[in-house]
């Protein structure tokens, strides 16, 4: 057991001194990590908030379909299942014509001044209606048309198409960002592995001695892996700071919403802490992957 701790202690000590000894090189790879993680952070803030907006908007995007006056309960059941069969339909809610009338009165004559309720006391002209919630990737126009074809439907309409189009546009921005972030991560991994290769090259005599005296591959490899991880952590310090303070600042500056009340931002706490954790994990992973493979390549026994 104490051998285990001595071993771990040595990995960290050697890894730490590796960073110190090749500080310039470590800093140059760490800055590649910094740039990558900063972009990842911006991407994540954008992405998570976009998800939040999308969910917010999804509630407001609906197709409504009014029914002919002469529909009976059998027709209603038939129409409901026909609607549910259309691709992209998530959920349907039925409202009776009286409920529709109540809603109408609520909307236009809540205080009763216009006397709408009295005017239509005996008979109101409202239709019963289905309200159709759609899935996030659904085509509103198509659903409205298909619903319109069903026997017994009087009229269909839909709203919120502008918002949906905007979401689609933002979604493509997100895909572009994802590709950029992927490419940058690959670059950062490449730079770290290069640094580690140079470190290994600078220390190949040490490695040869370690081998000659019978150090195991793990014993040779892990100090370098720790070195890579430390570079990754070093590179994540600035992005973590920028993320925490930047998001809190922006959130306060914008009053918690983006442009309109319709788009509330994700509250800073604990969101920034999640982001920070993701960034540190990403930095560590980049360092680990970059160093692990470059060492493995150099440590393979040639025989």
């Amino acid at each position: 057991m104490s051998k285990f701790f001595r071993r771990i202690g040595r990995y960290f000590r050697e890894g730490f001194w590796g960073v110190v000894r090749h500080f310039a090189m470590a800093i140059s790879s760490a800055s590649a990590v910094t740039i990558t993680l900063t972009l990842i952070s911006i991407f994540l803030m954008f992405s998570f908030n976009l998800d939040q907006f999308t969910r917010e908007i999804e509630g407001t995007v609906q197709v409504s379909a009014t029914l002919n006056y002469d529909c009976d309960s059998e027709d209603e059941t038939r129409i409901r299942s026909a609607i549910l069969n259309i691709a992209g339909v998530d959920k349907v809610t039925y409202k009776t014509s009286d409920e529709e009338f109540d809603y109408f009165v609520q909307m236009y004559d809540a205080d009763g001044k216009a006397g709408l309720r009295e005017i239509y006391a005996d008979q109101h002209p409202m239709h019963a209606a289905y309200y159709i919630n759609v899935t996030s990737d659904a085509d509103l126009k198509y659903i409205a048309e298909e619903v319109g074809k069903i026997e017994g439907i009087y009229e269909t309409s839909y709203g919120g198409e502008g918002a949906v189009l905007l979401m689609d546009a933002l979604d493509s921005v997100r895909y572009g960002g994802l590709i950029l972030v992927g490419a940058l991560s690959a670059l950062a991994i490449f730079l770290i592995s290069n640094t580690i290769k140079l470190t290994i090259y600078a220390r190949n005599k040490e490695i040869a001695i370690m081998r000659a005296v019978g150090a195991s591959n793990a014993d040779i490899r892990f100090p370098f892996v720790i070195e890579g991880i430390l570079i990754g952590i070093l590179g994540s310090l600035i992005p973590v700071g920028l993320t925490i303070f930047g998001y809190i600042y922006l959130y306060q500056l914008l009053g918690g919403v983006l442009l309109t009340q319709m788009w509330p931002l994700i509250p800073a706490h604990p969101f920034v802490l999640y982001l920070a954790a993701i960034l540190v994990i990403a930095g560590v992973s980049v360092g680990l992957v970059g160093s692990f493979f470059s060492v493995t390549k150099y440590l393979r026994w040639k025989r």
């Binding site: 081998r211 005296v213 019978g214």
Partner: peptide, 20 residues
């Protein structure tokens, strides 16, 4: 994977010393 452990049985000295 067993070579390192085996290597501990053998000490090696070279012409060029190979000191750090």
């Amino acid at each position: 994977s067993k070579v390192p452990k085996y290597r501990r049985n053998i000490g090696v000295v070279f012409q060029d010393f190979r000191l750090l």
